[in-house]
Write a protein that binds this DNA or RNA. Structure first.
Lengths: 254, 254
DNA sequence: CGCCACTTTGAGTTTTATCAAAGATCGTGG
DNA sequence: CCACGATCTTTGATAAAACTCAAAGTGGCG
């Protein structure tokens, strides 16, 4: 995979505000927050499919917010394996760094992607200006944390079959949250290698799990399309509870 | 395990500031931050060993900061298994909640523990008063996130043997960061069941891995004490890199 | 049409889990 | 101080799950 040559587009504060408001996290943007956001040095970058956006070990000075497209965040290991951490989509932010400023994982595009890039110093200024913005970042990190916990639980405690079912349900929920049409039949541009790397399985074994799921009349994964055939049974087999996607620190007390 | 009956101690702002300053994250506390911290409605609670501090599904209105003792955070599954997410220790904070205010995982003590409890509304006020405090919370969440990524990678990509080695090295680093003496020989009050639940292994298999590690002259885990016999070889076998513990969002640019 | 990447299948092996039960260890009460 | 129970550790034998290697099938694209 080659290094991503991006294409830069005009700065779009308005689009950023729209994106944040459509996010699954609770965002209450008042005047102070809006004006702080307007002062952000945000750029929109477009990347083709299958390029590396941020490489493991690379210097990082920005966070990125996904506007469109599918990507993946992973860690490469010396033993040749890799763990896919997440498939970020619209409204997800990516770009963490070690204390000395380097990325600990790789972020790559799968389809063409469009990302907002926000330099860290600019974000820091905006938060000082409108402290409420920090709650958004906290909510986002917190949501990512709970999704990671669910991912870890999935890999650590569930059989390959159940694990696969669980991931497909999670993807369905996330695609739906991004506003794409029918959650029971959605576009999913992942290869079986990528699914396997996310689930800690070999592609061969994942393939057999997909076949079982198909033969059981539960889900079909074919030509980059997921079709959920029996969602109720699938949810019950996978012990799936989408609640973890809506986690937060300072949530509303109903 | 019974519900934790805690014992409440006099409010200790000073101790809280000390704790934050000794934290592995970068904390620069100026006058504004100190006075905001002083206004926090923080209490210190003490729990005996082996009690549940926050139960899965329980209402949460506070975050907790560990002052002393060993605990564990885990998720229980319907299939009877559980995934241990973390063994929080001094300076770590615990207590996340779903958007509607309930805990998604259980937090239990292993040894007697002492925790600072900070009500969320109070924390929110303090952050508004001193926005810089939000960076501390962000750094802490970010650090937890990277530790989770490493944990997921460990369970997803590494063999039982290597995985076990990696966890013991991580614990060694964390214990050292808490200021406890010799990192090559430290107290570790975990049972093999708990280690197994953290690693996604059965206790029987974990036991065999520990035996192998011992027979190879790498580590000994005996009577709740870890002795690292050959750290260099262990690090190389486990592909261990402690860098993930020092991750942050707004780190210093060296 | 042919190449390339991805998917699918088969056969055999390794890793890990399961079941069963015997040692340790530690705290507690007699 | 010893005996007892409870919990934790260790071992053995067997079974199941997942991996490896090898190779054939599929589909899209230049």
């Amino acid at each position: 995979m080659q290094r991503g040559n991006r294409h830069n587009v005009a700065p779009p504060t308005e689009a950023l505000v729209g994106l944040l408001e459509s996010s699954p996290i609770l965002a209450e943007l008042g005047t102070a927050e809006l004006s702080a956001l307007a002062s952000l040095a945000v750029t929109e970058n477009q990347y083709p499919a299958d390029v590396i956006i941020i490489d493991q070990g690379e210097r990082i000075r920005s966070v990125h917010l996904v506007l469109s497209g599918w990507g993946c965040v992973y860690r490469d290991l010396a033993n040749g394996k890799r763990q896919i951490i997440d498939f970020p989509m619209r409204c997800d932010f990516v770009g963490l760094r070690t204390a000395d400023g380097y990325s600990y994982n790789t972020i790559a595009s799968i389809t063409p992607m469009s990302l907002f890039e926000i330099p860290l110093p600019s974000l820091e200024r905006a938060i000082r200006q409108a402290p409420k913005l920090s709650f958004m970042l906290i909510e986002m990190l917190s949501r990512q944390r709970s999704m990671l916990i669910e991912h870890l639980t999935n890999v650590g405690c569930r059989s390959a079959f159940v694990r696969t079912a669980h991931l497909l349900l999670e993807l369905s929920d996330r695609v739906r949250a991004c506003g794409s049409g029918d959650p029971d039949s959605f576009y999913c541009p992942l290869t079986q290698y990528q699914l396997a790397d996310a689930l800690g399985l070999t592609p061969i074994h994942l393939n057999r799990m997909l076949r079982e799921l198909r033969e059981e009349g539960l889900v079909m994964f074919k030509s980059y399309k997921v079709e959920i055939l029996d969602r109720d049974r699938l949810i019950s087999i996978a012990e799936y509870d989408g609640e973890f996607m809506r986690m937060s620190v300072f949530g509303k007390d109903e």
